[in-house]
Simulated scan of single mutants.
Amino acid sequence: MEALLEKSGSKTPLIAGMSLIWADWLKEEDLQDLVEHPLLQALERNEASLATVRTLLIQHSHYSRHFTRYLCALMGQLSDPADVMALMENMREEMGVDGGSAITHAEMFQRTLRVVGAAPASHAPLPQTLAMVDTMMGHCQSSDALAGLAAMCLGAEAIVPLIYRPILQALQHHGFGEDATEFFSLHIEEDEDHALTMLAIMQRLTLDQDARREQAIAVGRELIARRVAMFDAIWAHCQTQPAAAPAAAPAGHFSSADFWRVPSQLQAQLPERLSHEQVMAASQGGDQAFSSERKHKVHIVDLPSRTISLTIGRLEEGEATRLHRHNYETVIYVTQGQGYSRIGDRQVPWRAGDAIYVPVWAEHQHVNTGAEECVYLACENAPLLQNLGGIALREELSA
């Protein structure tokens, strides 16, 4: 663990990396319970398995999926319109209105879950996670706005860097790129500003009222204790899971230390998921985020393939994809509609039943010229390049 900051005046020392502005509101022993938790320590030391990371992300999703409800409930208890507007800035960032993000923070987190292979539906919320949700919501719904402010500020926003940095470290260690890490890096940068906004309101509500200030501190301590209890349950759950067989290849990537893991004979290893039912009908958050980035409808075929990917693209009448290029190959099969693709300096017409090939790094764009929606399947070898060392590259050439 990082060294503790030395005392500054009358302030209690805090964990390194946190501003001393929190010394009057957060207790050193609570923060130590958090950062010294074996779960976060394992993440920070690159000792947490990918299964552990997935379990943590799933439980965090069960808690964080209610974030906008927490915030809305809190804003409903504030009497000063200026305070409501101040917290609305947080809401606007969450919804992707501010901050330059094309997708909401919720969609960004769903993309993380999809890329990492953490399916919330695969594991019910632990009792300690539900207790965390209920405690946070109860304080945010309290008629005393100070309770909700303390819960959100001291029990969440102010301590985000302490929690998200180890998660970010673990994701990077397991070889995941920006699609998986952007949510955490963004919140590490932004959430202290949100916390300071809430702190300013708390300072005004507790001005010269020591009892009120102690009440707010107690709420923050309760929420940190709930989070530590949730981490306890996650860690205990992960410790009881059967260990991977010694000869199993490490998840995510190989290094020179793994050369001996090459087997002497082939053996089928069946993953848990072998089908993705009703791909187009069951569009998930990740699809919405992907479509937002691509500027047209795209459905991701979510299967555990390590070398190829398959997506279903859709173009409305007169719609076109953005001009782009990438260093992975693409084979496209058109199932409905007609149009053309600009590939390099050539224009390639197509209609339902045709297949087209897009070479590596050739700039290209697909255009629907028909009177109905165009639907096509795109098969690419991007996962192969990603698993070879994160060398897949895509470049957008038009807005």
Rank of each mutant, 00 (worst) to 15 (best):
294 R>G: 04
154 L>F: 15
334 V>T: 11
340 Y>D: 01
49 S>A: 12
280 M>V: 12
328 Y>L: 01
326 H>G: 07
288 Q>F: 00
31 L>F: 09
303 L>Q: 03
103 I>K: 06
117 G>Y: 10
279 V>C: 09
299 H>C: 01
48 A>K: 01
253 H>E: 05
79 S>P: 02
82 A>V: 13
81 P>C: 07
28 E>I: 00
367 V>N: 02
89 E>S: 06
1 M>S: 15
231 F>G: 12
189 E>I: 03
382 A>W: 05
152 M>Q: 14
266 L>N: 07
384 L>N: 07
354 D>E: 06
30 D>S: 14
272 E>W: 06
396 E>C: 00
61 S>D: 09
195 A>H: 04
84 V>T: 10
12 T>W: 11
94 E>A: 05
255 S>K: 08
256 S>M: 11
355 A>N: 08
165 R>N: 06
199 L>Y: 05
246 P>V: 02
99 G>Q: 06
23 A>K: 00
163 I>N: 05
163 I>Y: 00
330 T>W: 05
140 C>S: 04
315 L>N: 07
14 L>D: 07
348 V>P: 05
34 L>P: 11
34 L>R: 11
315 L>R: 02
10 S>L: 10
218 A>V: 04
133 V>R: 12
203 Q>T: 01
45 R>A: 11
280 M>Y: 08
352 A>H: 08
269 Q>N: 04
205 L>Y: 03
83 D>C: 03
26 L>E: 08
327 N>C: 03
292 S>L: 08
130 L>K: 04
97 V>Y: 14
332 I>H: 07
173 H>P: 08
262 V>S: 09
317 E>K: 13
149 L>P: 07
314 R>H: 10
36 E>G: 13
157 E>H: 12
83 D>F: 04
2 E>W: 00
349 P>A: 11
277 E>H: 09
72 C>D: 15
108 M>A: 15
229 A>L: 04
221 R>A: 07
290 F>I: 10
62 H>A: 02
27 K>M: 02
323 L>F: 10
141 Q>S: 13
122 S>Y: 00
376 Y>C: 00
271 P>I: 01
356 I>S: 05
218 A>P: 09
256 S>W: 06
273 R>K: 13
133 V>W: 12
398 S>I: 03
356 I>C: 05
364 H>N: 05
177 G>L: 08
170 A>C: 11
242 P>T: 10
376 Y>P: 03
72 C>F: 12
205 L>Q: 12
261 R>M: 15
15 I>H: 12
340 Y>P: 05
339 G>D: 08
334 V>G: 03
272 E>V: 15
149 L>F: 08
94 E>S: 06
132 M>I: 00
224 I>H: 01
94 E>M: 02
299 H>R: 13
59 Q>A: 09
81 P>Q: 05
